[in-house]
Structure formats: C-alpha cells, structure tokens
Computed example of a mutant assay.
Amino acid sequence: MSRTQGPVPRKKPSQAMAVLGICAVVFIGFSLTLPGFLSFGNLLALARNISILGVLALGMAIVVIARGLDLSQVASMACSTAVTLILMNDGWPTPLALAAGLCIAVAVGLVNGWLISVVEMPALLTTLASGLAVLGITRSTAVQHFVVNLGPGHEQFLRLGGNLPGGVPASLVVFVAAVVLVHLFLSRTVLGRFIYAHGDNPEGARLTGLPTRPLTMLEYALCAGIGYVGGVVMIAQTALMHLQVVEGTLIFDVILVVVLGGVSLTGGRGNVASVVVGTLLIGVLLNGMTIMDLDIQTQNIVKGIVLLGAIVLDSVLHPRDEETSKQGD
C-alpha cells in the first residue's frame, strides 16, 4: 500500500542570508557612486570600525539569545577602559591594568545578572539604570573630565590598534578571533546549549533543572567582558577614551547589528554568523553615510528605519504564536 504524504513544509528564509545579499548590493552601490569608498585608506577605516562594533555585538548577542538585553554594555566598556587608561598612566604594568579593567566590566555584568535573576527586576530598566550609575560613579571618583588620554611610553599596547605586516588591521584579527571563540562556546559547549535553552523557554529551562540564575549572571558577565575587549581595541586605536560615547548612539548600533542579522528578540535563535552579517551591513551603511557627509539626525533616521525593519522582519519570520505555543500559553 502506498502512503499518502502531506505537503513538505517550506523552509523559512534565512534572515542572515537576506541581510548578506543586501550588504553586497549596498557595497556595490557605494563603490560605484561614492568617490573614495574603495580607497585603501577608507577600507582600512571600515575594517577598524566594523571590528569594534562586531566585538560589542558578539557580547550583546549572547544576552539577546538568552532573551535579555543589556543597555549598560557601552557604559561598562567606556568606564572600565577609562580606568584602565588611568592605571596605565599611573605606572601599572599594562597586563595588570587590563586585568583590573576587565574585572570592573565583569563585575558590572554580574550585578546586572544578579538583579535580573535574583531580585527579578526587568532587564531593560535594570541595565539602563546600572549604565547611568556606572557612568556617574566613574565621573565622580576617577574621571573629572570626559576624556582620558593615554600617556607616552605605551607603544607596545598601541600596536593593537595599528596594522599587522601586509596592512591587515590588528583589530580585525581580534574580531575574527572573538568570532571563532564565541561560535565555539555557543555551538560546542554545554553552557552554550544551556544559553539557547534558556532563551528558547526560560520557564521550561528552570523546570528541567537548569541553574537559570547563575546562567543569567554568566550571560551578562560575558556580555560586559566581551564588550570590554571591544573597548580595549578602541583605546588602542585612539589612545584615549571619551566617556561621551555612553551618551551617543553606539549602544543602539550594537542592538541594531544583533537584531538585523537574525538574533531574535524572542530568544533562542541566532548565531555568530547573524552577528557577522549584521556588522557588515551596518558598518558599510555608516561608512557610506559618513562619506556622503550626512548630518547625525539623518543618520539616526536611517538607522531607526533599518532597526524597525529588522524588528518587523523578525516578527514575520518568528510569529508570536510560535513563542506562546512553546510555553503553553
């Protein structure tokens, strides 16, 4: 007897592949229309900017995959790296100063995770408040002015912001290394699988025995720690940290990269490839708008429209009824 088979379900389109295609079209369009876009100097600048944005987005992706959000990432990055610069200027050995800054960033992430998982405060308001608190504490105790400059005698450290033999930016190598490490962590380790399970169904993860509270603290600590790496690359490139970066749109650029690439705000979906393609598209867009000398308001309008489009696309590809059915609502 022959069996009657139902229709084969259609595979949903990959958001990452769609974004990669859009990025290729935008890159070709800018190459043909913007003078200097394909120049060696501009491509180097593009690679450096993409690297910093990409490293920050890798940390944010871990939290978003776990169905969270960290609005304090840029604040913890800026303040911890500012303290690192102060310690280096005071004569601390560079490795020790870097380790101290990392401890500060991770501590902020752990406090965020504790408040969210143990005190059960909303992630959005918690990280917004902690970012403001960290900035205020840093400004009142360590940084009297917004800018902290790196003093002379740190040429070895500044090489991290330069180019390797062959003209390859060292920051790009850091980004690639971070991509590989985060990919291996999320896809090949037990903790990585726990993070996906936590974001896919938090209540189900708790009922099956996953340590969701320590896991939440780990997620936010990783977000802050990886973000600190991006901050170290930034200060190596510029030899300074300007705390007004906290008040700018960098945190929204990071969230835009994550959501645009396909890391779903509903949790449990997305990967490192999503972050990479989102970083490429936003990096190319920002670089092109800078060459066109668009004012900051116009750039914000473009980024806002792109973010709204990414959220709509996320909702279309991952309807809310799928999420509620998984949780039994």
Rank of each mutant, 00 (worst) to 15 (best):
L215S: 07
P211K: 01
T189A: 09
G230S: 10
D253N: 12
V245K: 02
A236L: 12
A236T: 06
V176Q: 07
Y220M: 03
Y220Q: 04
L184F: 14
A170H: 13
F252W: 12
G230K: 05
Y196N: 07
V229H: 06
S187T: 13
V176M: 13
A205P: 12
F175T: 10
V190L: 12
T189M: 09
I255N: 00
T212W: 10
G225T: 12
G199Q: 08
M241K: 06
M241Q: 11
Q237I: 07
H198P: 00
E203M: 12
V173A: 15
E203Q: 14
P169M: 06
T216L: 07
G166T: 07
V176F: 15
R188S: 10
E247D: 03
V254A: 02
H242E: 08
Q244T: 05
V257D: 06
V246S: 01
L215A: 08
L210N: 02
N201F: 11
L184E: 08
D253T: 02
V246D: 01
L250G: 00
T212R: 05
E247G: 02
H242Q: 08
L215W: 11
A221L: 07
V182D: 06
V182L: 13
L172Q: 02
V173Q: 05
A236N: 08
V180Q: 03
V180P: 00
L218Y: 07
F175Y: 15
H198D: 04
V168L: 15
A205F: 09
L181F: 14
L210D: 02
L240T: 10
G209Q: 12
G231K: 06
P202V: 12
A178R: 00
F252C: 00
T212D: 04
G225S: 07
T212H: 05
P165N: 02
G248I: 01
